[in-house]
Design a protein around this nucleic acid. Structure first.
Length: 494
RNA sequence: GGUGUCGUACCCAAGUGGCUUAAGGGAGCAGUCUGCAAAACUGUUAUGCAUCGGUUCGAAUCCGAUCGACACCUCCA
């Protein structure tokens, strides 16, 4: 039984979709005025996992994620750079897709663009005009917040208190400072669409009402986004949508927490701002490895809590994944050996069962990926303990199968175990600060490595420990780690 | 000024009334194994969950106060 924390009620609720077996999921995508940072990555990853889990649970998910490709910031960016606003939007959509591919985030089922839904937006504004929720002023159209009695129900805000805060801008054109624009008249040179209220462009918020309702219906199951969108964006979406339809808009609201740096929200002014691209560029491993490390890092916290991004955190995540991949390598080796019966089989099979149960229990509890990961950690330990005594092929296949399923939900373990790249650690003596190694690509070819490993094996047979250790050192300097197995053979990690 | 979230071991982090005299990971220490390593494994590190009161048969979990951190009220994932 899946339970979801609903921002609207402030409680975890049992999830029951509108139509049994179907889920309509809308997530606010990006406003394409710039490239994505790791905050966007977190949001994308969180909802990627939620979507995958819903699918795993057997729901038929309609996942809609929009692009807001017309907005003040896009226009401002275009003016700053002396390019067409359309170019800014298209360029950043391209960049977005590149980033999402790097991250291994699956595409949504429908990815609509605001500029392709102007008519739908105008229809909603029309309805709002008709029933008194909107008014025009000098070619702009505003939403009359005071008429929507439930305004503030999502962000738990009181209209009176907000006014008392006195930080709302005063604008003579509005009847009330809280009113917000549904439609903005365009100045010359700005993008403009014809409308009953004159040439102009949509205000922020209306695009999400239009696109979500178009593809998922006037009432749909889940609406998500970053915590910062609760107010005003989602509050306004509710006001617009519910006032125009008279029906409940989204039933469950899910909001992910921020990515912080040094306990503070990332922001350009603080200079603690990382784009997805920068992280991939800086982290000296293949992008598939980086993707899993970043993903692991971000989902090892609960999605609603803030998470502090750091090099250290990335390294810890990498080291943890190393543990899983090292185990998977051993299991894969075992799966190639023939062993008819093994005393540990039963223990592992029940550990698998236990893990599956705990994993589902954790995910069912508001997508608790942190606890879910705990369950596979326990299994990893159990497998490592038992695998020394040998396991049968069947059991090895069971293990690999389970990790495949769990991996497909979390977006992890997508790399063939022997292709994983282990963390090259540099430990300082003081604590255990691990630094990113700037250069890991070794000049050694696979043939070189093989030759040295073979030479070392000969040396070990002769009990020439000196030569053996020399070679091990030489390889470790090149970033290749050797582990001697009990049977005399050697595992090569690189 | 208003509103909200949060404060769990050396670090990260789950748990939000009895399953928990607090999961999992990292780090430290002590072992097992090993030619030595590495890896893996075992044991160990919070009678206590910011502080002080209260409610309850029972609280990290509920209530109140205090201290601290962050966020939102303006664009923001």
């Amino acid at each position: 039984m899946l339970r979801i924390y609903n921002t609207l009620t402030g409680k975890k609720e049992v999830f029951e979709p509108l139509v049994s077996g179907q889920v309509g999921l809308y997530v606010c995508g990006v406003t394409v005025y710039d490239v994505c940072h790791i905050g966007h990555a977190r949001s994308a990853l969180v909802f990627d996992v939620i979507r995958r889990y819903l699918e795993y649970k057997g729901f038929n998910v309609s996942f809609v994620k929009n692009f807001t490709d017309i907005d003040d910031k896009i226009i401002a960016r275009a003016q700053r750079d002396g390019v067409e606003w359309k170019y800014v939007a298209e360029k950043n959509i391209e960049e977005y897709y590149r980033d999402m591919e790097l991250l291994g985030v699956r595409k949504a089922d429908i990815e609509p663009k605001a500029t392709e839904h102007i008519a739908e937006m105008q229809k909603i504004i029309d309805l709002l005009m008709e029933n008194g929720y909107a008014y025009t002023k000098d070619g702009d159209v505003y939403y009359r917040v005071n008429n929507f009695k439930e305004y503030g129900k999502l962000s738990k805000r009181d209209i009176e208190e907000m006014l008392a805060g006195a930080r709302v801008e005063i604008d003579d054109r509005k009847e009330d400072p809280l009113d917000f624009a549904l439609w903005k008249s365009s100045k010359t040179g700005e993008p403009s669409w014809n409308s009953p209220w004159g040439g102009g462009r949509p205000g922020w918020h209306i695009e999400c009402s239009a696109m979500s309702m178009k593809y998922l219906g006037q009432t749909f199951d889940i609406h998500g986004g970053g915590k910062d969108l609760i107010f005003p964006h989602h509050e306004n979406e509710i006001a617009q949508s519910e006032a125009s339809t008279g029906k409940t808009f989204a039933r469950y609201w899910i909001h992910n927490g921020f990515v912080n740096v040094n306990q503070e929200k990332m922001s350009k002014s603080l200079g603690n701002f990382f784009t997805i691209r920068e992280v991939f560029g800086k982290y000296p491993y293949p992008s598939q490895v980086t993707a899993e490390v970043l993903r692991y890092f971000l989902i090892s916290n609960h999605y609603r809590s803030p998470v502090d991004f750091s090099d250290y955190g990335m390294n810890i995540s990498h080291a943890t994944l190393d543990g899983f991949y090292a185990m998977l390598q051993k299991v894969e080796e075992a799966s190639r050996r023939t062993l008819d019966v093994a005393s540990s089989d039963q223990a592992i099979l029940s550990a698998i069962e236990e893990c599956e149960k705990e994993f589902i229990e954790a995910m069912d509890d508001d997508f608790n990926t942190a606890a879910a990961i705990g369950s596979i950690q326990k299994l990893r330990r159990e497998i490592n303990t038992k695998i020394e005594h040998g396991i049968t092929q069947d059991v090895a296949m069971e293990i690999l199968g389970l990790f495949k399923i769990i991996g497909s939900i979390l977006g992890l373990f997508t790399i063939a175990p022997f292709n994983w790249e282990f963390l090259k650690t540099v430990k300082s003596e003081a604590s255990f600060n691990i630094e990113w190694v700037t250069q890991v690509s070794s000049s050694m070819t696979d043939a070189d490595i093989e030759r040295l490993v073979n030479e070392r094996e000969d040396a070990r047979k002769r009990k020439d420990w000196k030569r053996s250790d020399e070679i091990r050192k030489q390889l470790s300097d090149a970033g290749i780690i050797l582990e001697d197995r009990p049977d005399g053979t050697t595992r090569v990690k690189h």
